[in-house]
Design a protein around this nucleic acid. Structure first.
Length: 276
DNA sequence: CAAGTTACCTGACGGC
DNA sequence: TGCCGTCAGGTAACTT
């Protein structure tokens, strides 16, 4: 999926087009995503309601309605959102359409169907933190994401630090691409056992996490094959990739060939000289 | 409990 | 041209 920067960019792109608009009708492909699309709940809690806010928590987009009901959208690996005039023919893999009161439709397209749609009534949505997000760790930009916090969480953990950083209950929003980039920027080997990192090393990880994610957001996210923001514009952070997808290419710092290994079932890229 | 594996699903790409 | 295997940004449910 889109990782945190991409979802943040989409969130900002959606906000001005959605806030104040009323959703007048929904359309559904009939196919199940990661979880079934709650069509009845959408009709009950979202339709004929005006949107009051669009936010992000972890990699979820949160659309809040006038009566406090919330629509959560997760883009999975291949999910995309776009605005189209109502009469535009729907595309293959358009799974959810939200018709707005100005004749524009917000369409959720997801080829792999790893995405998800959740609806909460006003009552259910009053505090999603202790319920829906109970297992979700802190946001990378929050105070709670700190070196002492990571050091404590890593105590006794044998798992490679890259796998640890990609674990949602530790910190949300960091997926495969940015985990690679953050560890390169922090000069820490992705294979290090989490418990062996010093407080100073965790500090570098926290600082670089925020720096890399912020830069990616400023670039409009990274475009890989199928990511586009809500206005059909592409991001350009990928030109800043220093290790991701650069197997065999020279490290931009020392010239050594970037290596690719498998870690936690995912492709992992790093410079064996710069990252210790 | 932690860590490793599998599954979900389609599309793109490289090799032959 | 096309067939086949491999891989892909995520996450949760399994097993070990």
């Amino acid at each position: 999926m889109p990782e945190l920067p991409e979802v943040e960019v989409i969130c900002r792109g959606l906000r001005p087009h959605l806030v104040g608009r009323t959703i007048t009708r929904i359309g559904h492909s009939g196919l199940q995503l990661r979880t079934p699309v709650p069509v009845d709940e959408l009709n009950r809690h979202i339709v004929n309601q005006a949107v009051t806010d669009v936010d992000r928590r972890a990699k979820y987009l949160i659309i809040t309605m006038q009566d406090e009901a919330k629509l959560l959208i997760h883009l999975g690996m291949s999910g995309r959102l776009g605005f189209f005039p109502q009469q535009t023919p729907t595309a293959r893999h358009d799974h959810l359409c939200l018709l707005l009161d100005n004749g524009i439709e917000l369409r959720f397209n997801d080829a792999r169907r790893f995405g998800a749609v959740h609806v909460f009534s006003g009552t259910e949505a009053t505090d999603l933190e202790p319920t829906f997000f109970a297992q979700s760790g802190p946001e990378p930009f929050s105070q709670a994401y700190s070196a002492p916090y990571l050091m404590e969480k890593a105590r006794g953990r044998q798992s490679p630090v890259k796998v640890f950083l990609m674990t949602n209950e530790i910190v949300v929003g960091i997926g495969n691409i940015y985990a690679n980039e953050i560890l390169f920027a922090a000069r820490i080997s992705p294979t290090r056992h989490s418990a062996t990192l010093s407080l100073a090393e965790w500090r570098r990880i926290v600082t670089k996490s925020r720096l890399i994610l912020e830069q990616a957001i400023d670039c409009g996210g990274s475009t890989i094959s199928d990511f586009a923001n809500a206005n059909h514009e592409s991001g350009y952070f990928q030109v800043n990739f220093r290790v991701y997808d650069r197997k065999g290419q020279p490290c931009l710092t020392c010239g050594r060939a970037i290596e690719k290994i498998q870690l936690g079932g995912r492709a992992c890229y790093f410079c064996p000289k710069c990252q210790k």
